[in-house]
Computed example of a mutant assay.
Amino acid sequence: MAISLSKGQKVDLTKTNPGLTKVVVGLGWDTNKYDGGNDFDLDASVFLLDANGKCASESDFIFYNQLIGGEGSIEHTGDNLTGEGDGDDEQIKVNLSNVPAYVEKISFVITIHDAESRNQNFGQVSNAFARVVNEDNNEELIHYDLGEDFSIETAIIVSELYRHNGEWKFSAVGSGYQGGLARIATDYGLQL
């Protein structure tokens, strides 16, 4: 049975699941009634961060135009342009045992594509969640519902996997940003 987390909570991932090496981080969402005439396209992205909380290079940024990173240890399975349907809207596969040693933290982000020009924000999004699944047996290990705490934000740092004493832990972050993906990328040391 999955552990359900709230914003700010952290939990051991590999210590409580011995032998766990491959996980899928699923991100999902729904859009509220929206009548702006534009598509509502949310995107999952991943930033691989070093001990300073920064990306060492652009190859440490995984998104719909660069699906593989971390020397092959991270794979974005593709862009969902509508968010229609149940379950995960986008997924990221992580081979924990192959993540490069310099990566201390893997940050999972959801942004709204062209949010400013389309006048869209996370106040128009509901049922957003992140979950961690054991890829080998499809067992859901962690579930984090983001809640409805956002209004004008156009990007959210949803969660993080991070190393601690040789083990991987999961943190439910839920931190909203204005300025979209470019703002978060800048904070992580990249220029988009």
Rank of each mutant, 00 (worst) to 15 (best):
A2W: 13
I3N: 05
I3D: 07
S4H: 14
S4I: 15
S6K: 14
S6E: 15
Q9A: 01
D12S: 14
L13P: 02
L13E: 02
K15F: 15
T16A: 12
P18C: 03
T21G: 07
G26I: 11
L27F: 04
G28E: 09
G28S: 10
W29F: 13
W29H: 14
D30P: 06
N32H: 12
D35K: 10
D35E: 14
G36Q: 08
G37H: 06
N38F: 09
N38I: 00
F40K: 11
D41K: 03
L42K: 06
S45I: 01
S45M: 00
V46K: 09
V46Y: 11
V46W: 05
F47A: 12
L48W: 00
N52L: 07
G53F: 14
G53N: 10
K54T: 02
A56L: 12
A56I: 08
A56M: 11
A56S: 14
E58A: 05
S59Q: 13
D60H: 01
F61T: 08
I62H: 04
I62T: 03
F63Q: 12
Y64I: 06
L67H: 01
I68F: 11
G69P: 10
G70D: 03
E71H: 08
E71Y: 05
I74W: 02
I74D: 01
I74S: 05
E75C: 14
H76T: 00
N80S: 13
N80T: 03
L81A: 12
T82S: 14
T82H: 12
G83D: 07
E84I: 09
G85T: 06
G87F: 01
G87L: 00
D89S: 14
D89L: 11
E90D: 06
I92P: 00
K93Y: 02
V94Y: 02
V94I: 12
N95P: 07
L96T: 03
S97T: 08
P100A: 09
Y102P: 01
V103S: 00
E104I: 08
S107W: 05
F108D: 03
F108I: 10
I110S: 11
I110N: 11
I112N: 15
H113F: 15
A115R: 00
E116P: 02
E116S: 11
R118Y: 08
R118W: 04
N121Q: 07
N121V: 02
F122N: 14
F122L: 11
F122A: 12
G123Y: 06
S126G: 00
N127Y: 06
A128Y: 06
A130H: 02
V133D: 03
E135A: 14
N137D: 15
N138M: 10
E139V: 08
E139M: 09
E139R: 10
E140D: 03
L141Q: 08
D145H: 09
D145G: 08
L146C: 07
L146F: 10
L146H: 13
E148H: 14
F150G: 05
S151A: 14
E153G: 04
A155K: 04
I157D: 09
S159L: 04
L161W: 09
R163F: 13
H164Q: 13
N165E: 13
G166Q: 06
E167C: 08
W168F: 05
K169M: 12
S171V: 02
S171I: 03
A172S: 09
Y177G: 02
Q178I: 01
Q178E: 03
G180T: 07
L181F: 15
A185Y: 01
T186P: 00
D187H: 07
G189N: 10
Q191N: 15
Q191W: 13
Q191A: 15
Q191I: 12
L192G: 08
L192E: 07
